[in-house]
Amino acid sequence: MSLPLRALLSTVLRPLLGALGLFGLWWLLALTTSPAILPTPWPVLMQLGDALFTAQLWQDTGITLSNVLASFVLALIGGVTLGLLAARQEWIEKALHPLMVVVESAPTIAWLVLAILWLGLGAGPAILVGVSMALPLIFIATVHGLKQIDTGLLDMARIYRLSPWTKLTRLLLPSLALTLAGAASGALSVAWRGVIMAEAFSASAGLGPALWGGYLYGDIVPVYAHILWIILLGLLLEYLVIHPIRRLIHARLHQR
């Protein structure tokens, strides 16, 4: 088998076969289940196809994506900043560690209730829930990444008395980039899940309320159409945003 054909098989055809297999399984299960619980794939795909030509779906998608992006950016800034402080002072790391464990292990619903209490209804609680889920991942990756930096490079920075800014931007952040890119993928994924869940209960617009509203009104096909759209968006984010960024960082860090 020629190389391009083999590459095409592994990158496109096999994942496609996997997806088709899932649809097949869904279809078989739907045949043995009430359509009020599990409709067949076809009406769901038709519903999604129709929705893609409506302004409402794109408006909801835009709102959810901006909430996810806001929570991701806040988690990234907060996690990296706290991680840098923790790496600088051991007592800060010791003080923050239990806090991060609590934040990470607390049920999402608990955060949501607190967020609604503190911020009221709207986008705020969704963003806060997204941050609470993503920030610990970024913090842990930052602390771990900083501990992995070659001590010889840190010695070099001390010998040549690099300014804190130069050290941060030319040594620490590039050293962290690859570890952070890996953590960012996980952080984006949990922020995505957390924001949609929180939106369903705290917001009036976005994919979360659209999904939850469909369920409340007994419109099962739109519920599945929204779930399928959310899964597709998650995959697109991973493969069109996170993967290219990770490849770019890898190429930049390992210039050949």
């Binding site: 070659d150 010889g152 490079l153 010695d155 070099m156 010998i159 040549y160 008395r161 030319r170 040594l171 590039p174 930049r252 860090l253 390992h254 210039q255």
Partner: peptide, 15 residues
């Protein structure tokens, strides 16, 4: 001003 030549050059690979 200090200068130091290390056993390994300690260069930043991305520069």
């Amino acid at each position: 001003r200090l200068g130091m030549v290390f056993q390994e050059p300690q260069l930043l690979p991305w520069l």
